[in-house]
């Protein structure tokens, strides 16, 4: 009976061994375009998206996917227009103002289908899994993802705190709409 407490203590340590799974190999069977997230093409603006299978939690709460998204954000030159999230010729991504909705599925749709006035469509150019990784990273810029999963500090200079040090944003469904989004189109 005396041995029981130390053994129990050792078992408690073992429980820390599993942290998160890195999923490298998406299912090779599904065809390109058969997205896990069903996207509606009806209307711009928040709330217009039909959501069937997945809310993107697998991508938003996984540190590996988020850091991959961060790398791809640079590789695919999202920075060229959106800078480091502060916006340039493209809108800012780190605030809570979203012209086409700030939910995970809205962002996936914006990247995949493109948006008027400049955002190109990347469907067929970026594989679906990578689009979702990027969308997860975009969500992390406003700290809509758990702190322990958000990417850490950059190696190079960064104009703002790293994603995991940003204050967590309050959940606004779809975000608020900036003036440019409210104006009649």
């Amino acid at each position: 009976m005396k041995r029981l407490p130390p053994i129990a203590a050792a078992l408690v340590f073992l429980s820390a061994c599993e942290r998160e799974d890195r999923e490298f190999r998406p299912s090779p069977v599904a065809g390109e375009g058969d997205a896990a997230i069903a996207l509606s093409s009806i209307a711009p603006g928040p709330g217009g998206t039909e959501m069937r299978a997945d809310t993107g939690k697998a991508y938003e709460e996984n540190a590996y996917h988020l850091s991959e998204g961060k790398r791809l954000f640079t590789w695919f030159n999202c920075k060229g227009c959106h800078a480091n999230g502060g916006g340039g010729s493209g809108p800012a991504l780190m605030d809570d103002r979203w012209i086409y909705g700030g939910e995970f599925q809205n962002i996936v749709q914006s990247i995949g289908e493109g948006r008027p006035n400049g955002m190109p469509s990347f469907r067929g150019k970026i594989p679906d899994e990578l689009i979702m990784q990027i969308a997860g990273y975009v969500r992390s810029m406003g700290r809509h993802v758990p702190m322990d999963a958000a990417p850490g500090r950059n190696d190079d200079l960064m104009p703002r705190p790293s994603e995991h040090r940003l204050p967590s944003s309050p959940a606004v469904t779809g975000g608020t709409v900036p003036p440019s989004g409210q104006a009649p189109q």
Partner: peptide, 9 residues
């Protein structure tokens, strides 16, 4: 596994 070459369907 883990290489940056993604699976292209």
């Amino acid at each position: 596994p883990g290489a940056h070459m993604p699976l292209i369907k």
